[in-house]
Design a protein around this nucleic acid. Structure first.
Length: 754
DNA sequence: GACTCCGATCTTTTT
DNA sequence: GATCGGAGTC
C-alpha cells in the first residue's frame, strides 16, 4: 500500500482502524477528505471488502462525486459499486425500492422546499388563518424541526408540551396544519426533504426484515461532515451499523453551521455514549493555510464556550497578515475587491480561480458583481436562485412531474392553467377539496370531472386530461429527452416562451433548452441504464446548484455564501460585508440567539483561505432598497489584532463617490465623519431616490390635463388625458423615461410639479 | 370567474 | 429587484 506512506501519524490511524466504531475529529484543512478516501481504498484493496458493502454518506452530491473519483484513482474501477451520496439521495433510493412497505408508490414525487411552502400556504388559507401569523417559512421550520426529531404528527398533536409551545407563540393551530400537511403529502404520493429521512427511520423501525437486509448489506458505514447531521440522520446510521459496529464518523465541531436545519452537535456526545469502545482520532495539523490564518482562526474560535478540545496548528510559513479594509459603501467595497484581485494577479501570478469572495447572504453579491463586471474580471456566482428554481424550469418540470405522478398536487396547481385555459383558482380549489373530501386520488377527480365541476371549466379540464394522458404514453414508451421535448412542445410552454422576444423571454427559452440538453446528455450517457423520464427526475430532484459545476473547471472568481463554501479552499479569500447585524445576522441573533453558530460560520470562512485573507466591511450599504448605516462586525474585534493589518489605502482620505451613487444628504462632511469616527454618526437613515415631498393620492384631485407631474417610480411626466367619468378615475401620463402609462387615480402617487 | 395591473412587502444560511 | 396580493375590469 504505497499511498499510505504519504500520511502523517493520526491520518494513518484514521485510515487503517477500519474495524469497530471510530470518530475522527478533523480540524480545518487537516486532510479529512484524504483520510476518508484512503480509508475506503484501504478497505477495498487491503481488506478485500466488496465496494458493494460500503456505504459512504456525504453532505453534498459534489463531495460524493469527488470522493468517488479519487477512490477510483487509488483503488481502481470497481469502486463504482460503492454506495456513496448524500443522506437524502441514498435513502430516497432505498425508499423507492421499499416504497410499498410504507404505502407509497415507488415513483413518489419529492417536494422541494418551494413545494412544501406553497402547500402550507394553501392549507393556511383553507383553514381561514392569517398567513402573517402562520408564515409558511415559520410553519415549515416548525414541521421540519419536529420531523427531524422523529416527532410524527400523531405524536405532535397528542403532546401537550408542543401545544403549549405553539399557544405561547400565538400559533395554536400548528398541530392541525402539521397533520393536514402530512396527509396532503401522502395523498399526493409525495415526500418532502425531511420525509426522506423520517420515513427511512419509520421503515427501519416497523419493518425489521428490511432493516436486517440493509444492516447485512452495509458492513461498513462512513459519515462525512458528522457535525452537520441531525438526529434523524444519526439514528439511521446508528441502526444500520448496530450489528457490524463498523461505523466511522468524520467531522469538526468547530465547523458546525447547520443547527438551523436541525444539525445537532450533541450527536457527537451521543455517539460516544452509543458506541462506548469507540476509537477517537484527532487530526490537528493544518496543511492548507499560512500560520497567520490558522492562528487568527484559532483566536476567534476560542471565544466559543461549547467545543471539543482540539488544537489546530500548522508547519506552514507565517504568510501575510489579514488585511482589513473599510469602505464607505458597498459599491466601494466591490471596487476595492476587484482592484485588489487585479493587483494580486499582476504581482503574484494568481489566476482568477485562485480568488473567492464570501458573504453571509446571497443578496450581497450584487454590488460585488457589478464591480467585477466593470473591471472585466470573469466571475461565477454559486447559489442564489438555482437553475431548478427558475419559473420556466419549474413550469416544465411541473408538467413532467405530473405526467409521472398524476396525484402531485403542487405540480397540478402549477400547470393546470398554464398556458391559460380558463381554469381559475376557484375551480382548482374545488377539485382539490373534492379529492380530499371523497378520499379519492386527484387524478380520479380529474377523469370524472363532470361529477365535481359544472359548466365551462369542466370542458377545459377534460382537454387537460386528454393532454396529460397523451403525455403519459410518451413517458412510458420514449426516453427522457424525447418525452420531455414532446411535452414542452405539446403543452404550449415552449411556444409561449418562443413568442416572448424580450431579453428575459429569450433567456427563459434558452433555459428550457438547457434543461432539454441536460436530458439529452443523460440519455446519451452509456452508464445510465434507466433512460426514462422518471429516472431522470429522480436523479435531479435532490441536486442543488453547487452540484452542477466545478470551480476549478474554468478560470473565474468564485462568489458564494459561506455556507456554500464549506469543504472548498482558495488561495485568496475575501470575506465581505462584515457588519454588525449582517454578520452576525440580526435574524439569527433575535430568533435563536445563537451567536456561537455565527462565529463558527466566520471560522469556516477564515479557514477556506490558503495564502491571503481579506476582511472587508462597508459603513453604509443598500438593504431592502434603502441606504442604511452599518457598524463593523464584533467578530473583527474578536480576532487577535496581531494577525490583522488595517489597509489605509482608502481610509486615510475622504472618499469620493460618483455622482450617481451619492444619495441626497450625503455630504462630504458626513463622509468624513464616517471615516474618522469609530461609529458612523447619522441622525436618520439615509434615504435614496425617495422624493422629499410625500406623495399622497389626494394630490391628484387637483390634477388637470397638460400638467407636469412627478411619480416616485417613473419620474417626471406630463398628463395627456384625464378620465374622470364613472367610478374609475384614470390619468394617462407620458413619462420622460418610461413613456405612456395609465394610472388609477385612487392609487396613483402623483405629485403636481406645475 | 378569470385576468391585469399596480403597489406593498420582504431577504439567512440549504438537502 | 422579484414576488404576492388586492382592486378593478373584462
Amino acid at each position: 500500500m504505497d499511498f499510505l506512506s504519504t500520511l502523517n501519524e493520526p491520518q494513518y490511524e484514521g485510515v487503517v482502524n477500519t474495524e469497530g466504531p471510530a470518530m475522527i475529529i478533523a480540524g480545518a484543512g487537516s486532510g479529512k477528505t484524504r483520510v476518508l478516501t484512503y480509508r475506503i481504498a484501504y478497505l477495498i484493496k487491503e481488506k478485500g471488502v466488496d465496494p458493494f458493502n460500503i456505504l459512504s454518506l456525504t453532505f453534498t452530491n459534489k463531495a460524493a462525486r469527488e470522493m468517488r473519483e479519487r477512490i477510483e484513482k487509488v483503488a481502481g474501477l470497481n469502486a463504482r459499486n460503492l454506495w456513496m451520496g448524500t443522506f437524502h439521495s441514498v435513502f430516497a433510493r432505498i425508499l423507492r425500492a421499499e416504497a410499498d412497505r410504507l404505502g407509497y408508490p415507488s415513483n413518489f414525487t419529492i417536494y422541494d422546499s418551494d413545494d412544501s411552502k406553497s402547500l402550507i400556504k394553501t392549507i393556511v388559507k383553507e383553514f381561514g388563518l392569517d398567513d402573517k401569523v402562520y408564515k409558511p417559512n415559520v410553519v415549515l421550520n416548525r414541521i421540519s424541526g419536529a420531523k427531524n426529531r422523529l416527532v410524527e404528527w400523531s405524536e405532535y398533536i397528542n403532546n401537550p408540551l408542543y401545544a403549549a409551545d405553539d399557544a405561547a407563540a400565538q400559533k395554536p393551530e400548528m398541530g392541525r396544519i402539521y397533520k393536514t400537511y402530512c396527509q396532503r403529502c401522502f395523498k399526493a404520493d409525495a415526500m418532502d426533504f425531511d420525509d426522506l429521512l423520517l420515513n427511512t427511520n419509520i421503515l427501519f423501525r416497523d419493518h425489521l426484515d428490511v432493516l436486517h437486509k440493509y444492516q447485512h448489506r452495509f458492513k461498513y458505514v462512513l459519515v462525512d461532515e458528522f457535525q452537520d447531521t441531525n438526529v434523524s440522520q444519526y439514528l439511521i446510521t446508528k441502526k444500520l451499523s448496530a450489528v457490524s459496529q463498523n461505523i466511522a464518523v468524520v467531522g469538526d465541531d468547530a465547523q458546525s453551521i447547520y443547527a438551523f436545519r436541525g444539525a445537532n452537535i450533541e450527536n457527537i456526545l451521543n455517539f460516544e455514549k452509543d458506541f462506548p469502545d469507540l476509537k477517537v482520532i484527532k487530526l490537528e495539523q493544518n496543511y492548507r493555510s499560512t500560520k497567520n490564518i490558522v492562528e487568527a482562526a484559532n483566536s476567534l474560535i476560542a471565544q466559543n464556550k461549547g467545543q471539543l478540545k482540539k488544537s489546530v496548528w500548522t508547519a506552514n510559513n507565517d504568510g501575510n497578515r489579514i488585511e482589513l479594509i473599510k469602505s464607505i459603501s458597498d459599491n466601494e467595497e466591490g471596487r476595492f475587491v476587484s482592484s485588489t484581485i487585479f493587483e494580486q494577479k499582476a504581482q503574484n501570478n494568481y489566476e482568477n480561480k485562485d480568488f473567492a469572495i464570501l458573504y453571509r447572504t446571497n443578496s450581497q453579491s450584487r454590488a460585488i458583481e457589478e464591480a467585477l463586471r466593470k473591471s472585466g474580471i470573469p466571475y461565477k456566482i454559486y447559489g442564489g436562485l438555482s437553475f431548478y428554481q427558475r419559473k420556466e424550469i419549474k413550469d416544465l418540470m411541473g408538467y413532467l412531474r405530473f405526467a409521472i405522478n398524476t396525484n402531485d398536487e403542487q405540480s397540478f396547481r402549477r400547470i393546470i392553467n398554464l398556458p391559460k385555459r380558463g381554469i381559475g383558482p376557484t375551480s382548482v380549489e374545488k377539485m382539490v377539496v373534492a379529492a380530499f373530501e371523497h378520499d379519492i386520488p386527484l387524478w380520479e377527480v380529474l377523469t370524472n370531472i363532470d361529477m365535481f365541476l359544472p359548466g365551462r371549466a369542466a370542458n377545459a379540464v377534460r382537454d387537460f386530461v386528454t393532454l396529460v394522458k397523451s403525455f403519459k404514453i410518451y413517458v412510458d414508451s420514449k426516453d427522457a429527452f424525447e418525452a420531455a421535448s414532446h411535452i414542452a412542445k405539446a403543452s404550449g410552454l415552449l411556444k409561449e416562451l418562443y413568442d416572448d422576444k424580450t431579453v428575459e423571454g429569450l433567456n427563459r427559452y434558452e433555459n428550457v433548452q438547457e434543461l432539454l440538453n441536460a436530458m439529452k446528455e443523460f440519455v446519451e450517457t452509456p452508464e445510465v441504464e434507466d433512460k426514462t423520464l422518471g429516472a431522470f427526475l429522480q436523479d435531479i430532484a435532490l441536486l442543488t446548484d453547487a452540484d452542477n459545476e466545478d470551480p476549478t473547471d474554468n478560470d473565474f472568481v468564485s462568489l458564494m455564501t459561506i455556507h456554500a463554501s464549506k469543504g472548498l479552499e482558495f488561495k485568496n479569500v475575501f470575506i465581505v460585508g462584515l457588519e454588525e447585524d449582517l454578520f452576525p445576522s440580526q435574524m439569527m441573533l433575535s430568533s435563536r440567539a445563537d451567536l456561537e453558530e455565527e462565529r463558527r460560520l466566520f471560522y469556516v470562512a477564515i479557514t477556506r483561505a490558503q495564502d491571503n485573507l481579506y476582511f472587508s466591511y462597508a459603513l453604509s450599504r443598500y438593504r431592502f432598497g434603502r441606504l442604511i448605516n452599518c457598524e463593523p462586525s464584533r467578530f473583527i474585534e474578536e480576532v487577535d489584532p496581531n494577525y490583522i493589518f488595517v489597509n489605509t489605502r482608502f481610509g486615510s482620505r475622504e472618499p469620493k463617490l460618483g455622482k450617481s451613487e451619492q444619495p441626497p444628504g450625503f455630504s462630504s462632511s458626513f463622509a468624513r465623519n464616517l471615516m474618522s469616527n469609530k461609529k458612523p454618526v447619522a441622525k436618520k437613515p439615509l434615504q435614496y431616490h425617495k422624493p422629499s415631498v410625500d406623495f399622497k393620492p389626494s394630490d391628484t384631485s387637483k390634477l388637470g390635463e397638460g400638467m407636469k407631474v412627478e411619480h416616485p417610480k417613473f419620474g417626471f411626466g406630463k398628463v395627456r388625458k384625464l378620465d374622470t367619468e364613472g367610478a374609475n378615475k384614470k390619468a394617462i401620463v407620458i413619462f420622460e423615461d418610461f413613456g405612456e402609462k395609465t394610472l388609477l387615480l385612487a392609487f396613483a402617487k402623483l405629485r403636481i410639479v406645475e
